[in-house]
Design a protein around this nucleic acid. Structure first.
Ligand SMILES: [Zn+2]
Ligand SMILES: [Zn+2]
Ligand SMILES: [Zn+2]
Ligand SMILES: [Zn+2]
Lengths: 165, 165
DNA sequence: CAAATATTGATACATTATATCGTTTCACTT
DNA sequence: AAGTGAAACGATATAATGTATCAATATTTG
C-alpha cells in the first residue's frame, strides 16, 4: 500500500488532481484496516466504499442505493445502512449530520478532531485538523466542567474552484 | 424587557437556576425582535417557543407536536415546521443537526459564531462563542481559499451536573 | 368595506432510517 | 470433507423526520 500522506495535501480537493490515486488509496487502506481489525471487507461493503470513493462529494444513503441498482440489483435500504455503519465504525467514511450524507475519508489518520468543509456549489468535502481548535475545546470544556465525547464541525461555503469559474 | 445579560452566565444551564427568569426573558425578547423586524408573534409561533423555553433541553418537531396536542388540539406537522422555520429565521431558536432537534436560544446576541454543548445524559444544551475558534476558522478558510457561509459546531458529552450525581 | 396579504388546516407524500426474522454464507474445527 | 457457530443477507414492514399543495380563513392595508 502507498503509505505516504500526500493524498492529504492540499486539504480541499482540487480540480485537476489525480483522483484515481485517491480511489486506490481509499480502497487499499480499507483492506489493510479491515485485516488489522479482524473484520471482513466483503463485496457489499466494498461496493459502498467504491461508490463513495468515486468522488470527494458526499452522497445520501439512497443515492448509494441507486448507484448499486445501476451496477447490479437494488439491495434493501438496511443493507446500505449496514455497510455505512461498518465503514463509519472503522473510520473509513464520515457522516455529514447537517446533510444526512456520507463521504470517504481521505486522511491517513485522525490524530486530532476533524473539521469538514463542504462546498455548497459543487458538493466537494475537505477535511482539516486544527490543534488550535482542539486546544480551545479543551479550555472551554474545562471551564464548563464538561466531559467531551465527540465533536462535530461542519463548515459550509464556497470552495476555491467554484469561486473562480 | 430585562436587558442585562446575566441569563448568559454561566454558559451551561445549572441545576438550581431561576428558570422562570429564562422563560420570560426568551419570550419577551421574541416579542421585541418580532416587532423590530415587522413580523407577527402570533399564538402558534408563541406556543412553539413557549414549549421550547420550558427547559434548556432540545426537542424534536414531533415532541413539540405532542406537547401542543396535550395543550389544545394537535396541529399538522407542517404547522410546527412553519413555526420552527420562523423562529430559526429570527435567531430565537437553534437546530441541532446531529439530533434533528431544536432549542430556545439563551444568548442576547450572537456576535461570533456559536458552539453547542449537549449533555448526552440530561439533554441540556449550552452555548459558547469563542473568538479563538472564529479566528482559526478565518485562518483555515483563507488558507483553503474557502468562503464560509455557515459554521455548525456540536459538542456532545456529559455536563458538570451529570458528572457529579 | 374591499382588496391584497399572510396564515392555517387538511391531506397526501417524500426522505431518511430502523426492526424483525428466517435463510444463507463464511471461517473454522474436527 | 462434513459439521458447527457466528456473521451477514434478503425480504418485509414500519418508524421518524420533513415537504408540497391548495382551498379556507384571518389579518392588514387602502
Ligand atoms: Zn481525489
Ligand atoms: Zn465547489
Ligand atoms: Zn433556565
Ligand atoms: Zn447533563
Amino acid at each position: 500500500m502507498n503509505t505516504d500522506r500526500s493524498v492529504e495535501s492540499p486539504h480541499f480537493p482540487q480540480v485537476g488532481h489525480d483522483h484515481a490515486r485517491c480511489q486506490s488509496w481509499i480502497l487499499q487502506r480499507a483492506e489493510v484496516r479491515c485485516r488489522q481489525e479482524g473484520m471482513r471487507f466483503i463485496p457489499q461493503r466494498r461496493e459502498v466504499l467504491e461508490i463513495l470513493a468515486t468522488s470527494h462529494r458526499s452522497l445520501g444513503a439512497y443515492d448509494i442505493l441507486e448507484r448499486m441498482q445501476a451496477r447490479a440489483r437494488r439491495p434493501p435500504p438496511a443493507a446500505v445502512y449496514r455497510s455505512l455503519e461498518f465503514l463509519l465504525g472503522l473510520g473509513l467514511i464520515h457522516r455529514m449530520a447537517g446533510r444526512n450524507t456520507y463521504f470517504a475519508c481521505t486522511r491517513s489518520d485522525h490524530d486530532q478532531q476533524i473539521q469538514f468543509w463542504i462546498c455548497r456549489h459543487c458538493g466537494m468535502v475537505g477535511e482539516t485538523e486544527s490543534p488550535v481548535v482542539a486546544g480551545e475545546w479543551q479550555r472551554l470544556s474545562d471551564s464548563l466542567g464538561f466531559r467531551v465525547s465527540s465533536v462535530n464541525v461542519e463548515i459550509e461555503g464556497e470552495c476555491i474552484t467554484c469561486r473562480n469559474p
